[in-house]
Simulated scan of single mutants.
Amino acid sequence: MRMHPGPEETAAGTAEPPAAGLHEVGRLLAGGGVAVLSGAGLSTESGIPDYRGATGRARPRTPMTFQEFTASEDGRRRYWARSHVGWRTIAGAAPNAGHRAVEALRRSGHVTSVITQNVDGLHRAAGTADAVELHGALDRVVCLDCGRTSSRLALDRRLTGLNPGFRDTGSRINPDGDVELPDALVHGFRVAPCAVCSGVLKPDVVFFGESVPKDRVQRCFDLVDAARALLVLGSSLTVMSGLRFVRHAARTGKPVAIVNQGATRGDEFAAATVAAPLGETLAALAAELG
């Protein structure tokens, strides 16, 4: 059940402080053995918007699908042109207080594993090197023909050489690391092939319409099974990719807590929900637990 009412649930019509939920989250963490499942809401304080939270509501945009990307050269050109401009924001983003708090809790033994739905690499940048990146990472590129994985930084340099000045165009960054660009600009963009086999390059992320590798999914289930509890941070759990782990934890009798600015599809499975800023809340919890 939910540990605190939302604003519409209070008798006086004002929001009740989430003290009960925070107490329960702190209690779960104090017991150790907690697996973390993080989402886009954890990275908004690093300047990366989300799709469905407060920063994402104004962007009713459909991201690139795997089918679009693989179907045509025009689709790939559109993706890489927009992503090339947006990459500077992703590459320049730094871990925020929330990422650092998760790493502090991991070092102290309260958190035993981290699964992230984010592709920004900020958990790694905060020191959580073994975080399972469920949907991959934008700082890696994979060739769909030969399977070779390479650095996004190296590709960025090649794209810059092929498209001088293109980086200075564009507008607001989107959650998947690209921007909206006029069709006229996209049309003239030159795409770099694989440096080894001249095949098709794709960011090493799971696009919409693409499946997460089965071994990676199983790894996440194993981490949830090995944990005593599951803590969800900054995810609306709208897609089954993350929600399945919450359902699995609840089905196996493990307590679930959720810290997110807004309701989630997993609230019904949670012993505690907290609607509060992620960075501030997690930093306070980490400090309290030492």
Rank of each mutant, 00 (worst) to 15 (best):
G32Y: 01
G33N: 05
R59G: 14
E68A: 15
T44I: 12
N96M: 10
H99N: 04
Y51N: 08
F69N: 08
A94H: 15
T116R: 05
R107H: 10
L37F: 03
A94Q: 15
T55R: 10
R124H: 15
F66M: 15
F69Q: 10
D120H: 00
A91P: 03
M64L: 09
D50F: 01
L29G: 08
V111H: 00
V119K: 04
S38Q: 08
P63A: 11
H84N: 04
F66C: 13
F69E: 12
T65F: 11
H123M: 01
R61G: 12
A54F: 11
I115V: 15
Q117N: 05
A81Y: 01
A97W: 04
A125G: 09
A58K: 15
R77I: 08
S108V: 00
A91Y: 05
Q117L: 08
W87F: 12
M64G: 11
G121A: 06
R106F: 01
S108R: 13
A93N: 04
N118Y: 06
R106A: 05
E73H: 15
I90M: 13
D74N: 15
E103G: 10
A35S: 10
R106H: 11
A104P: 09
A97D: 12
H99D: 06
H84C: 05
R27W: 11
R57P: 09
P63N: 09
G31F: 03
G98I: 02
T116V: 05
P49Q: 07
D120F: 00
G56D: 11
I48W: 07
E103P: 08
G121R: 00
